[in-house]
């Protein structure tokens, strides 16, 4: 082998390994990658009736995450497959995913939620596991794509976020099947043009509505009776929007009190400034606030200086 090739072989192998590893680790992506929802034709007239029955999250406000929105897209059979506006488009998972979803559901979810998703498991306590019907695909997609479901310990008061067992497409498939049992909204949100959103408005809304549980820096903390508000540092934009609209678990749901434009601004703030905070002052000490700062001041500041004094002075 020529000498140059031999010299380049090892670095090339290293790069290849590193590159492959990075691709595997960071290929998670968001569920939005699986639906071709970027161009929704606005082919609907306002007079077209809603063909989706009222859902648990129904609100009467226009452009607030329900089918009562500027844009509504129906398929050839008249079913609503997408709705929304320039800020957020809510897209139903494709019907083609339903068979896959049914198979995955029976494998991963039926033991607790029942074979008809009504919360009655084969041999468990009826009513202990929630009825999943009529909650909309966004709900199911959020819980499964974020890894909270399947739950590691159903007896915990709060299902913890963990490494997802199903891929984003599989999560959408499960959502498609569950939704097919009792079609409802909200659909899976796709937030548009996050870079041009109004982060100032998003910051103010975040401060008023979200900081009380998730803290103003988005780090999350323990709440009452063993529950907690999770950290927002590592969540894709779609999951942020899903959580806001569906109010999972103990989180309240924001429906008519936040328009799609406001939700888009909040998502932009969270993905922009919560997840990429500006820290010109140096190490952010975990973002834990004055307690961490006091600890550093006392240990590194006073403590190290006392050690310096120990060096300077006598010991007798």
């Amino acid at each position: 082998m020529p000498k140059l090739t031999k010299q380049l072989l090892l670095p090339a192998l290293v790069l290849l390994t590193v590159g492959l590893t990075m691709m595997i680790l960071f290929s998670g992506g968001s569920s939005s990658a699986t639906t071709s929802a970027e161009s929704i034709p606005s082919t609907v007239t306002a007079a077209q009736a809603l063909t989706v029955p009222p859902a648990a999250y129904q609100t009467g406000r226009f452009n607030s995450g329900t089918a009562f929105s500027s844009v509504r897209v129906h398929n050839s059979s008249g079913q609503l497959i997408a709705y929304g506006n320039r800020d957020i488009t809510y897209v139903a998972p494709s019907d083609k995913l339903i068979p896959l979803g049914e198979a995955l559901y029976m494998q991963n979810c039926a033991s607790c939620h029942g074979s008809t998703a009504n919360g009655v498991p084969a041999n468990g306590t009826p009513g202990a596991y929630p009825d999943l019907r009529g909650l909309g695909p966004a709900t199911v997609d959020f819980w499964v794509a974020s890894g909270r479901m399947p739950a590691s310990d159903p007896r915990n008061i709060q299902a913890e976020r963990k490494q997802p067992r199903l891929t984003p497409t599989q999560a959408l498939a499960v959502a498609a099947w569950v939704n097919s049992l009792s079609p409802a909204t909200p659909y899976v949100p796709i937030v548009h043009s996050i870079q041009t959103a109004d982060v100032s408005d998003g910051f103010q809304l975040f401060s008023l509505n979200c900081a009380a549980c998730h803290t103003i820096t988005g780090d999350g903390d323990a709440l009452a009776r063993g529950t907690n508000a999770p950290s927002l540092r590592n969540i894709p934009a779609t999951q942020v929007a899903e959580a806001i609209r569906t109010g999972p678990g103990n989180m309240p749901r924001f429906t008519g009190n936040l328009s799609d434009e406001q939700v888009r601004n909040v998502v932009a703030y969270v993905t922009g400034y919560i997840q990429h905070p500006r820290d010109p002052g140096g190490f952010d000490l975990g973002g834990l606030g004055p307690v961490a700062e006091g600890f550093v001041a006392l240990s590194f500041g006073v403590g190290l200086l006392a050690l310096v004094a120990f060096w300077i002075g006598d010991r007798t």
Binding site: F203, Q204, S207, L208, A211, A212, C213, H214, T215, I216, T217, D219, D221, L223, A229, Y273, P277, R278, G287, L288, G289, P290, V291, E293, G294
Partner: peptide, 17 residues
């Protein structure tokens, strides 16, 4: 990162120095 003080806003895990 904390934002301006408005009397009806609050953050969790607020600590004094």
């Amino acid at each position: 990162q904390f934002g301006y003080y408005r009397a009806s806003n609050i953050s969790y895990a607020v600590q004094p120095d």
